[in-house]
């Protein structure tokens, strides 16, 4: 894409700005900040990836993945700030998901062990797992509020914290995974996924792009399952104290 074409994409920002002004939405500042930040962040990432792809140093790859996990955990964990050590728990879930995913992809030789493959796939895995963690935390928060009576009824009958929390955790795991599986069912029919679109636009054969997209869809499905299960598993120690009293 030429610099001229890139500059012309600002027309879309102009349309958004115009609509905001005409409709008196008061979003002009948000639009400017969003535009500048997204452009700068993406350009920065572009340059960093350029350097990483050039050096191919494993430590550099690990550093980038660590930053991705840290930012994702910070962001998703923000949904349940009052739960002690929640961000650490999300980071652990994301780290495990990423490790299992990469171990399978690289171990079976599905993708090449180069930054060109590892970093984008990791980005998609961690990003999608972050969304799953966020959904899980939201649902658990709702559960600890709405199902408090149910939990207490179990506890009063001598249930352990694990037994009292199990039905809520199960519901939260399910509801955090459902969007991933729903989008799997409609992919290609309703939306053309970003990665595939990007590859096609960049000149790749559509069939080749589709092959990679299938890989990504399956990776994201398993990543969603692993993340949700791990979040569920850790919940038994996170949401209720040892006596079974909720933190939220």
């Amino acid at each position: 894409m030429s610099d001229y074409a890139l500059a012309l994409t600002l027309v879309f920002v102009g349309i958004t700005m115009l609509l905001s002004i005409r409709q008196k939405l008061g979003l002009e500042k948000e639009i400017v900040v969003g535009t500048v930040r997204s452009a700068l962040q993406l350009l920065l990432v572009g340059y960093i990836l350029h350097i990483v792809f050039g050096s191919r140093h494993p430590l550099l790859i690990m550093l980038i993945i660590t930053v991705m996990i840290a930012v994702a955990a910070w962001n998703a964990g923000g949904r349940a700030k009052r739960v002690p050590r929640i961000r650490l728990a999300v980071a652990l879930a994301l780290l495990c998901t990423e490790s299992v995913t990469m171990a399978v992809l690289l171990g079976l030789g599905i993708i090449e062990a180069t930054p060109r493959f590892i970093i984008p796939v990791s980005g998609m895995t961690i990003g999608s797992s972050m969304v799953v963690s966020g959904l899980f935390l939201n649902q658990m928060k709702r559960e600890t509020e709405s199902s408090r009576g149910e939990m207490e009824a179990y506890l009063a009958l001598g249930a352990t914290v694990r037994q009292a929390l199990a039905p809520s955790v199960k519901r939260a795991v399910r509801s955090s995974m459902i969007p991933t599986f729903d989008s799997m069912k409609t992919i290609g029919l309703v939306q053309l996924p970003g990665m595939m679109t990007g590859m096609i636009v960049a000149g790749a054969e559509p069939i080749e792009a589709v092959r990679y997209q299938i890989l990504i869809v399956f990776v994201l499905a398993s990543a969603a399952a692993i993340t949700a299960m791990l979040m569920g598993y850790m919940s038994y120690r996170l949401w209720l104290d040892k006596e079974g009293r909720p933190y939220i």
């Binding site: 009576g149 506890l155 009063a156 009958l157 001598g158 249930a159």
Partner: peptide, 16 residues
Amino acid sequence: PAQWRKKVCYTAQHPV
């Protein structure tokens, strides 16, 4: 706590 509650059982006024 679970062992305690097995021996000392509370039945709430508005049971769930």
